[in-house]
Write a protein that binds this DNA or RNA. Structure first.
Lengths: 212, 212
DNA sequence: GCGTAACCCTACGCACGAGTAGGTATGCTC
DNA sequence: GAGCATACCTACTCGTGCGTAGGGTTACGC
């Protein structure tokens, strides 16, 4: 009596992706705690024990979401910013790829990402990703600096890179909240804030507080 | 038999502050959801029904925390950045006040703030505060621009301001995570990132993507 | 000294949601 | 077509934590 087979008995790999899709969706719109495993299961068109069997606990599930989305984003960026280009061009392409990605996954990534910043269990996971980005940006700055024959203390470089990454994340939030906004244009604006300032630094222009 | 009166029967205003102190502390270290009203009450040296009687639901309590801390911060900034100063000086004093505040409330404010970004119910509350900041910064930029005889579309101005505020928030996070870091120095670094770039924009220097 | 209003408590009800026990059906291999 | 693994389900347990009912005690006005 297998008259209506169609939507059943799929291989594990497929179901896992469906579950992750559903999880990203639900976590995004509800937040980690407010999201229930029941809703995720229902949204994935499957029953709860299956989710536990394949992806484990709620926390593990969330981490899996972060991992998948994070990896996709990193790949998008890495694929765009070839390491043999000049610093400004790399920065530009990286930013464009980043905002393009966020624009294409507005409710997915950006909200998931915002969640992770707050909850202790995931802050570490996220910090790792951010650290990789900061390292890349700091490396770019350092490289450009050496080309100019200058040097800056590593800490300063890291903090500047951190600020740039932070500004970028904020604009990503902004982009996620403004569906009408254009990712490309946002990238251009970020480039203006970031690169014009950074270029000054690279040329040895420094702002100092007045002695008061 | 009132031999040990000391720590009992305090007036409402005092108890409310104690409760808020406790709530900020617990929300900060546990996060909104993981924090329990029982723990907050215990930490405030009072019983749970009192908290409900004075400050209302858990959500209302959290909002009250946000409000108190946010107001304090805004006052700290407003008190430092007099509106009749030149833009760069205002920016500098504002930043110094901001990082000073965060430095003095590392585990209080910064963590509370991070929480609020993620949870939908509070995102709005926080957005309002951020919007006020963005408005101030954008106003400063606009003012400085007009003094130079230039103009920029309001949207662009807002986005730039948003990016600057975002970068500042990120450095605040960084500061909160690095207890050894100096707020003053952090403010200087932020000033370098922000002002050097902004000053370029003010002078009409603009970065544009190459036609490819 | 007596009422009344504030302050404060010890319990509990109750819903919600994470995680599981235990069982059924379907395809695949030989 | 028997055996086995994999996909899948319904229906529970059980802890946790929000919010409250209902009652006690200290101050303060008169």
């Amino acid at each position: 009596m297998s008259s209506v087979p169609a939507f059943k008995r799929l291989p594990r790999a497929v179901r896992e992706q469906q579950m992750l899709d559903a999880a990203v969706k639900v976590f995004s719109r509800r937040g980690f705690h407010a999201a229930s495993m029941d809703e995720i299961a229902e949204d994935a068109g499957i029953s709860k024990p299956m989710v536990y069997a394949y992806l484990g606990t709620k926390e593990e599930l969330f981490v899996a979401c972060l991992h998948r989305e994070g990896t996709r984003m990193m790949q998008a960026i890495a694929g765009a910013a070839a390491p043999d280009l000049p610093a400004d061009e790399r920065l530009w392409r990286g930013l464009r790829a980043f905002f393009g990605f966020v624009g294409a996954h507005r409710d997915g990534w950006a909200v998931l990402y915002r969640q992770a910043r707050g909850e202790q269990p995931f802050a570490g996971e996220l910090a790792t990703m951010r650290a990789r980005l900061v390292e890349v940006v700091a490396g770019m700055l350092d490289h450009a600096l050496r080309a100019e024959g200058r040097e800056i203390a590593a800490v300063d470089l890291e903090v500047v890179a951190y600020a740039l990454v932070g500004a970028t994340e904020s604009l990503a939030d902004w982009l996620a909240d403004h569906p009408e906004a254009d990712p490309e244009k946002t990238a251009t604006r970020m480039m203006n804030v970031a690169w014009l300032g950074a270029a000054q630094l690279l040329h040895g222009v420094v702002w100092r507080p007045a002695a008061d």
